[in-house]
Simulated scan of single mutants.
Amino acid sequence: TEEGQKRAKQMLESFGIEGLVVIGGDGSLKGGLDLAQKGITVMGLPGTIDNDLGYTDYTIGFDTSVNTVLSAISNIRDTSSSHERTTVIEVMGRHCGDIALYAGLTGGAETILIPEVDVDINAICRKMIQGRNRGKLHNIIVKAEGIDMSTQELAETLKERTGMETKIVVLGYIQRGGSPTARDRMLASRMAYKAVELLEEGSESRAIGINGSEIVHYELGDALKMKRDYDKQVMELADILSI
């Protein structure tokens, strides 16, 4: 709120704080932008498991979340195979499908459903039936929470059309916790170091990210306007490997 923003500015000024590092997702960084427009120097670090900020290749927490989901997929696969069933695993990510895409690819999922691509229920059923005809005992379907079809509706439709027993696993908030991976620790450390460097240099408010292996930074308002698209090559690779 406007009142909250004014109070935050007053508190920072009262304690002589000249620079603020905001670590969070889209909402947190927009709050940081509001403060920046009121004269506070803000450095924005992308801390969100969703990986949904367009100005950076990866966000802090994304790799940890993907590895958590990957571990769950590996555990679920054992039961899915032994009971010869299809399992739909719902993962987080809001309107960004990166968690589903990266975990699904590395976890060997037969089908990956993300919000950026329309669901083709016929194609999913064909792949399941063709796999069964080749002797495949089970299917793992990784579904991002943001797609239009509910997980319950998807499971019921697949069971009805293929005759294959279909179960649901919603991973929920276990994806948001746990011990950070080495990659996330390194990313967070490098971004934090850049934030301090920029503050010491007297820089204006910036958003800090990573492009390839390079730590980059942009004007905070411009960074939040950048749009993100999913990696089509990763999706194509996942489709190839699932055959």
Rank of each mutant, 00 (worst) to 15 (best):
L35E: 08
T87L: 01
I76K: 09
A109P: 10
T48G: 00
L20F: 12
R77F: 14
P115D: 13
A223W: 02
V42S: 01
M128Q: 01
V69I: 12
L33C: 11
D120V: 08
K136E: 13
A238S: 05
R176P: 11
E201I: 08
M164G: 06
V21N: 09
E18G: 11
S28Y: 04
R77M: 13
G108A: 12
G202N: 07
R7A: 13
E165T: 10
M235T: 12
G16K: 07
L33F: 09
L12D: 03
V91D: 03
D57P: 03
V117A: 14
A36S: 09
G209T: 02
E90I: 00
G19L: 09
G104K: 03
G93C: 09
E153K: 08
K227E: 12
Q5S: 08
I76R: 02
E2M: 00
A123E: 12
A195F: 06
K127A: 06
E204F: 04
V66N: 02
E13R: 05
N67R: 10
Y218D: 09
Q10Y: 15
P115S: 05
K38F: 02
I208A: 10
Y218E: 07
I240F: 15
I121V: 14
T151N: 13
E165Q: 14
G61I: 13
R161I: 04
K143Y: 08
L224I: 01
T87W: 01
S189R: 15
E3W: 15
D118N: 12
S205A: 09
H217M: 10
K143P: 14
V234C: 11
K227Q: 15
V69C: 04
R134T: 11
T59P: 01
V142N: 08
K9I: 10
G108V: 00
D148P: 05
Y230V: 11
G24H: 00
D222V: 12
T68W: 01
D50E: 07
E110P: 05
I114T: 13
K30V: 04
E197V: 06
Q175P: 01
T41F: 08
L220Q: 06
T48C: 01
A8R: 13
N139W: 14
K143E: 00
V42G: 02
V88P: 07
L20Q: 03
L241D: 06
D184N: 06
V22A: 05
L171R: 15
G27C: 12
K38V: 07
L198T: 06
L29H: 09
A238C: 02
D148M: 13
V21D: 04
G4K: 11
I99H: 00
E90P: 15
A8Q: 14
Y55L: 08
D26W: 01
